[in-house]
Design a binder for these strands. Structure first.
Length: 219
DNA sequence: AAAACGGGGGC
DNA sequence: GCCCCAGTTTT
């Protein structure tokens, strides 16, 4: 049986050796929920260093939804070009001020269901904004959390949403705030998609699936 | 359920 | 050159 508390403690201790990319990125630059929202949307499937450069440049000119609304979709594309999926993200960002204004009175909402109404925001981003901007407990399941939770044997799930719901059941809420960061850092440094570094794994003795074929998870 | 979207950085 | 990146939207 997995001891989640123990795993958490070990990873927490290891954590100083790692970094929590997006959290560090936005917290170093702003506490403004709107800017955090922008940075978080742009960070999807994108290296944090790339996101950081783009976001820094944007924050020179854009501080509010009104500022963002002044730009055309093409101008936004040009602005965010180095991040991946820039056309999709520009489309979302271009529409964002309108939705914030019409539905949320120009404020970034705090509830998951509300955040999900924003363009470019899916479950992972909604949860991430909630934790970073509002310090509310949330579980955001990205590829790392999904993969590792299955590899360790916490869950046996097909979709990230299933993983999120299962973790919501079995993971005590007091761990939610930092758990994602720890698991992501762990996923980048040890429990990698291919060829995980099991020989130097800090929670080797807590893993039920060492050496088990994981292609069914990793895809 | 699957496809489309993507440039940048690491090795 | 190949692999991966704290996914979302559209078919």
């Amino acid at each position: 049986m997995i001891n989640i508390a123990k795993v958490y403690d070990v990873l927490a201790k290891e954590f100083e050796k790692y970094s929590a990319p997006v959290v560090d990125l936005v917290e170093a630059q702003t506490k403004d929920p709107f800017k955090i929202l922008l940075a978080t949307i742009l960070s999807a499937r994108t290296k944090d260093t790339t996101t950081s450069e783009v976001v820094n440049a944007m924050f020179e000119y854009i501080h509010t939804p009104e500022d963002l609304a002044k730009y055309t979709r093409e101008e936004i594309e040009e602005m965010i070009y180095p991040v991946g999926f820039f056309r999709n993200k520009a489309k979302s960002l271009h529409k964002l001020p309108e939705v914030l204004k019409n539905k949320f009175n120009d404020r970034v909402p705090e509830e998951i269901d509300e955040l999900l109404e924003l363009p470019g925001v899916g479950r992972k981003t909604a949860n991430l904004v909630r934790t970073i901007a509002f310090r509310k407990p949330a579980i955001c399941v990205d590829v790392h959390v999904h993969r590792i939770s299955n590899r360790l044997g916490y869950v046996q799930t097909k979709t990230p949403l299933e993983t999120e719901m299962k973790l919501r059941e079995i993971l005590p809420e007091k761990y939610w705030l930092n758990y994602n960061s720890y698991l992501v850092a762990f996923g980048q440094n040890h429990c990698t998609p291919r060829n995980p570094k099991c020989s130097t794994c800090p929670i080797y003795d807590q893993c039920e699936r060492v050496g088990v074929e994981t292609k069914w998870i990793d895809k």
